[in-house]
Amino acid sequence: MPSLKDLKNRIASVKSTQKITAAMKMVAASKLRRAQEQAEAGRPYAERMGRMLASLAANVSSDGEGPKLMTGTGKQDTHLLVVISSDRGLCGGFNGTIVREARRQIARLEREGKTVKVLTVGRKGRDQLRRTNPKNVVHSYEDIGRKRLSFAEADMITAKVLEMFEAGEYDVASIVYNKFKSAMTQVVTFQQVIPFALSQSDAAEAQADEGQAEAKALYEFEPEEDQILAELLPKNLSIQVYRSLLESAASEQGARMTAMDSATRNAGDMINKLTLTYNRTRQAVITKELIEIISGAEAI
């Protein structure tokens, strides 16, 4: 049986832990709000970019002579996975699920006889993947969006991805990231970015747009379609990377908030239990002393 002093210390330490987790939860909540605002602010650009791409693609893809980013290299031998995780822990299953999905994909692709290269963003993903798949990880970034995620950082990652693509180091690229659904739930998403596939929603949007007032707006292009496309596609890739980074940042804060919330609640339960034990022990000590005094008095 632990002594009264031990119990007291224990309660004090759990209490201070609870204070920390409660504070972390608050911080995560405010960061989450900021991340969500940022994701919201980035939406108009992505929407318009998608619309432009859709109308461009409708004009170009038919002749099959599009840029490589769209048509691919004609092979599917080497895959690049961009795995987006966080730099810091204490966010529940956030990094665990991402890494598990990445491993699953690596295993699946390798079973199909393909070479897999991995580019990690965030320290946690890098550490965990390096341990199990050291030969797959070719490059990694850390401290992305430490203060506030900027588009320039996404651009930097994209530049590396494109450089590798142009050097012929891989044929297909995908991003693995946590998509933000709500503060409680994140959905692990596997999204192919090279060769570029027009998402269903973008295509539908473009059609809906055309269906409206701008009845089949036939755009003029200046310069030629394929030239614009050649410039637009890398930009679009930056946007995709930027968006998934934003989603991941929001998810991370959401996951942390949830994890810290339950940690705070667990600490509360623990304090209650410990306090109960403490009081019982105290009572037991008092009773024991009383018995000793009474039996001492009786003996006289």
Binding site: A41, R48, P223
Partner: peptide
């Protein structure tokens, strides 16, 4: 007229005319 950057929507307002520095 709308001016959009990846980080936010900068301008969105009705205008009489805009002159844009096009590629050509």
């Amino acid at each position: 007229f709308e001016l959009v950057s990846p980080e936010k929507l900068l301008v969105s307002q009705p205008v009489d005319m805009v002159v844009v520095p096009g590629g050509e």
